[in-house]
Design a binder for these strands. Structure first.
Lengths: 262, 262
DNA sequence: CTCCGCTACTCGTCTAGACGCCCAAAGGAG
DNA sequence: CTCCTTTGGGCGTCTAGACGAGTAGCGGAG
């Protein structure tokens, strides 16, 4: 319970209607915003804040939990509370599935990662067959059964997204698509080899807080939402040949799209 | 502190490593997921949960705050804790700025809302001139000054997004674009009348937790992220003529994009 | 010098209680 | 019957303390 280094933090306004823990959170937020605590820097410990403000520890913890919920800070057991660093973001361009990106040896994720000088990894790969959910079924034109491909992507050791692909079984069964590693260019290259020349993709983007299993899979800090991206691929005959349901750590991505004005 | 209506909630596992408040949160989450508490339904009161589980009130509140952070429930002072209803989502199609949508009397937002049978409103309109930020300046080709248009959109009385547009002053000054109401078709229609025929848009999509002012402006419940959409409009000469920075309530939107496979 | 254990500090969890304000319903005054 | 007050239940805030567990550094044993 040492004294605070300096006058970075002010005093409480006893006459204010604003709850004490909110005032403390406000002051910390402002100090972080002003750069008094840099990214990754350690905030004063709970004891120090208790001493500085003359409040009980639960009040301080309440203030810190507000900032945690905003995604501004994260705590590490036994070490302290730190300003959450902004991780490098991966920019997903809308032409990332263009054919010329595919005519190479590797998957889109790997190519992009290596171009950015990052190390990429894919794990937790599962391939199975099942009956589609109502939503997937509707998007794929009501196939009886679908091939399901599930995998998780890591960038420099950090999990950043996981994705589940669904393909009608009559298209995918007995092809390399049903293999754990579908080969160079990924399943879109295989689909084209199988005569399903791709014409367009539809993508739906949502954002929400992660479920506990999602937070665990992506090792998400509190206060980090996920982006859910559902992509449907259509071939030149207008048939939906794949649905890909992706959950991404929102702090790791920015999605870029290009729209014609028509 | 009456008894709980039935066996919807189980008992605690004293041998588990999992913290008591997490176990309580788990049980409530599961009960909600199973539909035992419908959307909008009231959860057992804190007192009831204290009585049911035999723990202190802070532990129960801790459990409820977990669910609140996940966006599953929200509390109302003096009334109770309720399962957060999923509001109707507005689907933004990628052709929403197509010219044929614009050749009407109203703004895109209004047209869409009325088509869906909703009541739309625009408020908090501000128009001013200022020096652009570094980011806006880079996107717009380093104009000295920009026209700034700021407004908030409401759907059936609920604020769902607010947006700030930036236009180079040499384009917008002295035109209807600088007026509070730019007229039918919005500023894109005015830009085209001024000879800036629009060719394409670039959109960048991010998601994060709201800042406190954003949460206030959009009246966001805890646990609801925002989608930030930055759109740049280019004319046929390749010049960036507008940047629009939008913050949307993530629970009110799904963004739809169509990508050609090329 | 190296390794290990102690210790101080950190956050995590939980208790038991207090007071305040908000809300809704019951009940009395008019 | 209407209106207002009362009252109980609900969440919001805060206190003071306890114990547990992870971390890191110091210092002594070997």
């Amino acid at each position: 319970m040492t004294a605070l280094p300096s006058g970075l933090l002010g005093v409480l306004d006893a006459t204010s209607d604003r709850a004490v823990f909110r005032q403390i959170a406000d002051q910390l937020r402002e100090a972080i915003g002003k750069g008094h605590f840099a990214e990754g820097a350690k905030l004063p410990s709970e004891s120090e804040l208790v001493g500085h403000y003359g409040v009980s520890r639960m009040t301080v913890r309440n203030a810190l939990s507000v900032l945690q919920g905003e995604g501004l800070v994260h705590s590490e057991h036994g070490k302290g509370v730190f300003v959450r660093p902004r991780p490098p973001v991966r920019r997903l361009a809308s032409d990332r599935f263009a054919r010329h990106h595919r005519d190479q040896g590797k998957s889109a994720f790997t190519v992009e990662a290596e171009a950015a000088g990052s190390h990429s990894q894919v794990d937790n790969l599962q391939v199975r067959e099942e009956r589609p959910s109502a939503d997937v079924s509707a998007r794929l034109g009501s196939p009886l059964r679908v091939l399901v491909r599930h995998r998780r992507y890591l960038l420099d050791g950090r999990p950043v997204e996981f994705a589940t692909s669904y393909l009608p079984l009559d298209i995918a069964k007995g092809t390399p698509i049903a293999a754990p590693n579908p080969g160079p260019g990924g399943i879109y290259a295989r689909l084209e080899e199988l005569g399903h020349r791709l014409e367009r993709f539809e993508e739906e983007v949502r954002a929400r807080m992660p479920t506990p299993p999602e937070a665990k899979t992506l090792r998400l800090a509190p206060g980090v939402p996920v982006i859910r991206l559902v992509r449907t691929a259509y071939d030149t005959k207008g048939r939906a040949v794949e649905v890909c349901d992706t959950v991404m750590a929102a702090d790791a991505y920015v999605l870029a799209y290009e729209l014609p004005a028509q």
